[in-house]
Nucleic acid binder design. Structure first.
Lengths: 211, 211
DNA sequence: ATCTGTGAACCGGTTCACAGCC
DNA sequence: GGCTGTGAACCGGTTCACAGAT
């Protein structure tokens, strides 16, 4: 389970995350079994896609019956690596960073914010929920002490690459960036970037070319 | 230019948006010409990919020379539909909605926020930059009057689908959702969803399965 | 009878390689 | 010589279709 022979497509991992969300809804409704078809309908895919996605990691269903909801939740959580919580640092305590630091959907899904950092002395010390904004200069020492595994970036474009470099040098291997800047990371580091401008421009394109 | 015969892949549109960003940097640095290779290097693709992406829409370069930076910027902006500004409404004036409403990268790229809405009477009237939060009950009338083309959703999961339905009924055809909920839209409406949990779970997967 | 698991076929996006123009 | 534009080859993700289990 922990080292599938083949490389798994990102689209598969993304769908597993989606299935997990639906399975939790099914569980909350008290449903104990699902078929690949039901899961597919919830998530806008096909039953074959659901079965194929799961088949990369093992056999979790019973032929003629479907999948046990609780078991499949546990299996997908294990596949995604969610059996234990992941400590996260947020860098940038501007409006977006502050909103993220207090976002409940974060913690409720096993991602614990262990630190929020900003280079602006005026922001350092500000309370954000249970946390206090810390100075960016504390970053490396804090990482060494608390071993966060994921960094979330909410900094201006110019600041983003230097921060990525620091965070990578400090040993982090996963970064989620909201900075409106293209970033480079060395091999072995996973970077995901959410770029608002691009999202909106794709919508503008779709509106412009709609028939 | 406005109705390419073939359907264009989303990945192509996304890259065009990226090229545009790099071209603007090249322009700011005073560079007047770029080759597909230079653009590719900035954006982590290949020169063939850059040329292919552009070729779907026309011929913008000069063989042996490359592309004129200013011309290509204008061409891509036209392809994406960015010659005129797009009015946007933001629905949800919680932390994330408020942060988005004041996000400068929005306006600076031709997306003008013309209204921010919330169902919470305590939030209605609050100032967000130059805007005031308006009551969600004003949404339909405001849409009829100001004709926004894009809705950005920053509401809780439970509220998201009903709001999507209202926004679609009011005539909008493009939605960018930050709500942590899977949403359904009728054909002809483009929905893009940014899901924080999924982004983090993909990172967790990559950390768990890194060799 | 039903629904899973999976090799095979399919399809579309990416890469290649070269002809065409500056 | 250098770089674009593009048909053809390639590759990998999705879909199909059926064997296998209950």
């Amino acid at each position: 389970m922990h080292s599938p022979l083949k490389h798994i497509a990102e689209s598969t991992v993304r769908r597993l995350s989606l299935y997990l969300r639906f399975l939790e809804e099914f569980e909350a409704r008290g449903q104990s079994t699902v078929s690949s078809g039901e899961l597919a309908r919830s998530g806008g895919t096909t039953s074959a896609q659901v079965r194929k996605d799961l088949s990369f990691f093992g056999s979790f269903g019973k032929r003629g019956l479907g999948y046990d909801v609780k078991d499949l939740i546990a299996s997908i959580r294990e596949i995604l690596g969610l059996e234990h919580p992941w400590p996260v640092v947020i860098i940038g305590a501007g409006k977006i960073g502050a909103a993220l630091a207090q976002y409940r959907g974060f913690t409720s899904r096993g991602f614990h914010v262990v630190g929020v950092y900003d280079s602006d002395p005026a922001k350092v010390g500000n309370a954000l929920g249970a946390l206090q904004v810390r100075a960016l200069t504390d970053l490396e020492a804090d990482i060494a002490q608390h071993h966060p595994r994921i960094a979330v970036l909410a900094v201006p474009a110019e600041a983003a690459q230097p921060i990525v470099d620091r965070v990578v040098a400090a040993g982090l291997r996963a970064i989620l960036s909201f900075a409106p800047a293209p970033l480079l990371v060395p091999a072995g580091v996973t970077l995901r970037a959410v770029n608002m401008a691009t999202e909106l421009e794709i919508l503008a394109y779709s509106l412009t070319h709609a028939e």
